[in-house]
Design a binder for these strands. Structure first.
Lengths: 267, 267
DNA sequence: AAAGTTAGTTTATGCCGTAAGGAGTGGCAA
DNA sequence: TTGCCACTCCTTACGGCATAAACTAACTTT
């Protein structure tokens, strides 16, 4: 289930995102015992350690020694809180990339950092991308990627598309791994155990597999599904290699576009 | 929130997925008034029309004139039901692609069909990809893509990666549009209205935008964010072009890999 | 007719987000 | 100093969710 951006008072939520300070001059009433910041941090801690599914207002409140309802004085709703978490988390991403070694090296570093970030905060992948949250750090991320890609010398129109493709790709690749990490914890089975059990069942239930799926069977017989490094869980290794290989393909495609446009890459 | 594959009795869920008939010879008890099939179909209807968030056992039961609990005689749990929905939906995808015009045309058709499919059943994008559902139609989809890509003449190891990249890409691109379609319905605002309101707020809240995000500002000044076709909602148009452009980049990358490997493309 | 299995119901448990209203706090105007 | 009122935080409550448990009623086999 995708978590949507808050629909409440847009002005208030933008103010929260961009940290425009509230008019604070000596207000009546008891001193606030909490703050938006600690609530957001706590919520991130909950999401990091127990996953997005376990993120509830009650859970966050409990960690702070409050009830769920206490949070509503600071944050209009859960979805606004999620927006704030999202933007706060993005602040962790690196911003400076050395462009001396060429755009390709820089894009690769950027993609790897983004990938690592997503795996560090898998819940981020579950925040809807439909309508961008429009927080400052989302813009920083976009700006960073664009600054690197601009080095390719491609036109603005093409660049806009490329950024989209890159983001899509990194997100999707990370998503696969993130989910594959969650799953064994949820089922109490390792990847290997799970695959072993499942493939036994598969033979039982589809004895005509080889005839129905000849190309797949060919791929398997070529050893394409053998992992080289046994120490890393199968699926994760697979996804990481797919990520690296896919990124390379994407960058090759960008180079092709450059050549077509007659752009000369930096030495 | 990601919906996980069922964790119940693996044998039973595989049997349901692959339609191995239950031992049916004259069983005691009342005649079943429902069947797994009608339940799955109804659930898909619910998800198609009201979205994954509205898919509840109650909702499905209600459409069938039963209580939520009645479904549990046919389906072990909600997540198994989601698996079944997923595999059933995938059956809609085309399987035969003309290879005469070359792999590139075929891959493009395949990707466009998959894209259209995802937009037709957006909820599919919310089914976790962590551990493949392993239903028959997921294998069919994989087999189809592989049969086309095999035409490139690349090795099995490379192909395995390419399929992953392609799937990632199509899914992610579709996801953006799918979510952008859901959002306005949820907020009761058109994309244009929303963007207009938000960008006004953005200026209000970040008056130093141009200095903080010079590359973004440059891109904007180049007119990169002007949509050509006004009739299609902005975001959707944007995503569709990003999809087409991204796919082209990807295919260019594949061609580069072929050239490097010394493979000759078909005429 | 009795026994045993199955379909479907009702009821209940424990989660969730959040609306509503009330209690105590503390700065400010009178 | 007193009263006001915005403010924080609480309790309670509502309607939703998945699903466990126990029950009724239908039907086949013994």
């Amino acid at each position: 289930m995708v978590v949507f951006a808050g629909q409440g008072d847009a002005r208030r939520s933008m103010a929260l995102l961009w940290h425009t300070p509230r008019p604070e001059g000596g207000r009546p009433g008891p001193k606030p015992g909490l703050s938006v910041d600690v609530i957001v941090d706590t919520a991130i801690a909950v999401a990091d350690s127990e996953g997005m599914a376990a993120l509830s207002m009650r859970a966050v409140g409990e960690r702070l020694g409050r009830t769920a309802m206490a949070l509503y004085t600071y944050v209009p709703s859960k979805s606004e809180l999620v927006d704030l978490m999202y933007d706060r988390a993005l602040a962790e991403l690196p911003v400076d990339y050395e462009l001396g070694a060429g755009w390709r090296a820089a894009v690769t570093s950027w993609a790897e950092d983004a990938w690592a970030f997503y795996l560090c905060h898998p819940w981020v992948l579950q925040v809807s991308q439909a309508r961008p949250v429009l927080g400052p750090n989302e813009y920083v991320m976009l700006e960073t990627a664009l600054r690197i890609l601009r080095e390719t010398g491609l036109t603005a129109g093409v660049l806009r598309r490329l950024v989209g493709v890159l983001f899509h790709f990194v997100r999707a690749a990370a998503q696969t791994v993130a989910e594959s990490r969650q799953a064994p914890a949820a089922t109490g089975m390792s990847d290997e155990e799970w695959w072993y059990a499942r493939s036994a069942l598969l033979e039982e239930v589809a004895p005509d597999f080889a005839e129905r799926f000849p190309t797949l069977t060919w791929l398997d017989s070529e050893g394409a599904y053998q992992s080289e490094d046994e120490s890393v869980p199968y699926l994760e290794q697979e996804a990481k290699e797919t990520f690296a290989a896919g990124l390379a393909v994407l960058l090759d495609g960008i180079e092709a576009a450059m050549n077509r446009a007659g752009v000369r890459a930096l030495p």
